[in-house]
Design a protein around this nucleic acid. Structure first.
Lengths: 350, 350
DNA sequence: GTGAAAGCGCTAACAA
DNA sequence: TTGTTAGCGCTTTCAC
């Protein structure tokens, strides 16, 4: 009877029912101009034969795939997974399937993913740049093809780029004001890659806040992290401890290095909070699990993802390439024990 | 000149060069039976016009998409991201693009993702089941369509299922032997969903190890976690502390609840390790950041992902549905401070 | 080494 | 309400 080796196609249904392909197509797509009887007939057979529409064929014909491509640097930690979650939530409600790709902080992969997504005829691309991305030609290509392109968190310095970011400058500035308020004056900074808007802004805020409060900027108090790992923070902290005069606070551009610093300080018998204040950035879940709990800045990852998709949906609607829109979310400073300078840390009391 | 509103197609190249579509197709695919001159010509024009092959069309025609679908319960924590990383590594080397979907522990989403992947004509599906999955009809459909299906970590109790798991039973058994060796006798267990092979096996090992060592099984020492979060562990620990006699050890089926328990114990002034041993499962990065550092079991996520893809590639080769293959990886007990019962914990010395 | 023609599975004019 | 027809962009026989 049925050919064993082949999936049933729309044409199979049509033939079996003596209907035209177009009628079956309309029936399956709940078109209004098909009799209920026919619809029922078609659907019944479709169920019976386990008919699976071929979305490739539909996409080819329609010129749109209902797929949204997403490129993230990685899915470690909690931030990008949160963004992805937000993206999926809104995208699926809007009828889009999401295709997630990791660049693993590698431009070449990023480029390859852009290519692949374009070839796969995705209806739009959401990107958070890798930290090795220097030129934006691959992004220009996307837009020149007319494919909506929305950045999130990490976006290039292009005047017409569209995207959602968090106000890293503000978040970092608040961290600094908080530390200064605590009485800290020799505040060190663990800096991230200066090529990224995010960590660049955090560094700028560090500098500006110092200046605004009449605290001299000391180059020796800034350590450029080779990565965002715990060990990177341990090495950085070690370097700071070599200084003739120890800093009284460290503002790390990421949480994990701050965690590493905390471990190292403990090894040296230096009490976090009491002897040295410590602040991270990202509000990773582990910040509440360590002692003392780590002060950090929340970036509202889920909201960012949701907003990015909404931006994409707007781009999709209008044909003109929409004047560059940059949505800026407010970060949130979350003060915990680690930054309460001079106060005995919680774990010493227990 | 060129129509502004349309991407250049293979046919455009052919027309422009006065060649047949087929020739251009062969040239682009580096076929051997095309003259080098023609190839060069075609490639030059392709570059010039920024030609992007339409992989949908190719897939439709060829009957294969070179896309591998992956469904994970979530990408929180470090385990599943590690698996995904392993998958991407091997898959991309084999020329496959990976499409990642999260079920968020929701069967309905899992089913929808299966459907979507099938419709998108993926060449195979890799799944780690959600913890709400009870029937496997949607998986049967995949295989009945002839699409290779490989499970990883969480797999259904189907005799012919193919997949890669870690030996959870062994890992848990080692945990128990370790604790018993430390002198623990009132060992509690934070149990995961018993519907999942993974957490079910961890629980079984808990029971079997007790029995093997002549330690009575006490129902009141087992708490079934409502989730794998920190707070779930705090609540569970609180429950255990209500008991007339406190346990001297807790083996948690997940790391995060163990972390939660640790926090709660600290609040109660109960010293982890010294007063009560604590062990988790998964070897999350945070386990080394807390004090005392948490003993755990590593599940080799990356290797699992790599292996899963290799299994998929094997399935793809042979036409027959390959006798069920179940690859079992050895877990690794990582002993840290938290389980050294009776010994003063590291954080008290500093 | 190249071309002509058919068709993957679906949708969308247009006609009836 | 349904059918006819054409074609999305590509690959693949089969000729030449």
């Amino acid at each position: 009877m049925a050919k064993a080796n082949k999936r049933t196609s729309l044409a199979d249904l049509a033939k079996e029912l003596g209907l035209a392909n177009s009628t079956v197509s309309r029936a399956l797509n709940h078109a209004s101009d098909v009799s209920d009887a026919t619809k029922a007939q078609v659907w019944a057979l479709a169920e019976k034969l386990h008919y699976q529409p071929n979305s490739l064929a539909a996409a080819l014909r329609k010129g749109r795939s209902n797929v949204l491509g997403v490129i993230v640097p990685h899915i470690n930690g909690a931030f990008f997974p949160a963004v992805v979650h937000g993206i999926e939530e809104v995208a699926s409600k809007a009828g889009f399937n999401v295709m997630i790709c990791q660049s693993t902080e590698d431009v070449d992969r990023e480029k390859k993913h852009v290519e692949a997504l374009l070839k796969a005829q995705v209806d739009g691309i959401l990107v958070s740049m890798s930290n090795t991305t220097r030129d934006y030609a691959h992004f220009e290509r996307v837009r020149s093809q007319g494919t909506p392109l929305v950045f999130f968190d990490r976006m290039p310095a292009l005047p017409d780029a569209c995207g959602v970011v968090v106000d890293d400058y503000l978040g970092a500035y608040q961290v600094m004001e908080h530390l200064i308020e605590q009485g800290c004056r020799r505040i060190a900074h663990f800096a991230g890659p200066q090529i990224l808007n995010t960590t660049y802004d955090r560094f700028r805020a560090y500098q500006d806040a110092l200046k605004a409060h009449g605290i001299p900027y000391r180059e020796e108090l800034v350590v450029h992290l080779p990565g965002s790992s715990t060990t990177a923070g341990m090495t950085a902290m070690q370097q700071l401890l070599q200084l003739p005069e120890r800093p009284d606070a460290v503002f790390s551009a990421y949480d994990f290095p701050a965690g590493g610093a905390l471990q190292l300080l403990e090894d040296y018998g230096i009490r976090v909070a009491e002897d040295i204040a410590l602040v991270g950035f990202s509000n990773e879940p582990f910040t509440t699990m360590i002692k003392p709990r780590l002060t950090s800045v929340d970036q509202h990852g889920t909201l960012m993802g949701e907003t990015a998709v909404e931006l994409f949906l707007q781009l999709l609607k209008r044909a003109e390439p929409l004047s560059s829109r940059r949505i800026v979310l407010k970060p949130q400073l979350v003060v915990r024990d680690s930054s309460l300078y001079g106060q005995p840390a919680f774990h010493k009391q227990a």
